[in-house]
């Protein structure tokens, strides 16, 4: 089999079966348990090929819940830098998108986009499992765009 066919196959599977890494960035647990609920029998996202893994170096998508604070912003940046290109970031919940009710608290930097670029914002407090799945499907479109951009710039 020629290398290009294998490459196409891998690229297609990456767009059909995204691997996620989830990071709790100072959340109240509400969004975290909803992310976990997505994996369990009622929602079961694994049947769509969406896989939750612990290693950022294997992941295509980063799901961030909660506000960024001064202690964990470096951890978040580090996690983002370890992921291979192309990658997309989802900010989950009111806190992840803007800081939510905690935006004026003294130890809160703000939403996730203060530290790393965010592609998809998923609203809700706490964010519902249906909204998370919808956000991941939206993010797949962004992943395809980023992949096309990357291969276009590689050809030049």
């Amino acid at each position: 089999m020629p290398v290009s066919v294998i490459k196409d196959f891998i690229e297609k599977s990456r767009l059909k079966s995204p691997w996620l890494v989830h990071f709790d960035c100072g959340s109240c647990n509400g969004c975290d348990i909803e992310v976990l609920a997505c994996l369990t029998p009622l929602y079961d996202v694994e049947r769509f090929g969406i896989l939750n893994i612990g290693n950022p170096k294997h992941a295509d998508m980063l799901l961030v819940t909660g506000t960024v604070n001064h202690r964990n912003k470096k951890v978040l940046k580090n996690l983002y830098d370890q992921m291979p290109h192309p990658k997309v970031v989802l900010a989950l919940g009111a806190c992840g998108t803007s800081g939510g009710v905690f935006r004026e608290a003294y130890n809160v930097v703000g939403g996730v986009d203060k530290v790393i670029p965010v592609d998809v914002y998923v609203p809700g407090c706490a964010v519902k499992p249906e909204a998370i799945i919808d956000g991941v499907v939206t993010a797949l479109g962004r992943l395809a765009e980023k992949r096309a951009e990357a291969s276009a710039s590689a050809k030049e």
């Binding site: 100072g26 506000t67 604070n69 202690r71 964990n72 608290a105 130890n107 809160v108």
Partner: peptide
């Protein structure tokens, strides 16, 4: 790691 300071 997840301190927000909400008492304040």
């Amino acid at each position: 790691y997840v301190h927000r300071g909400l008492e304040k």
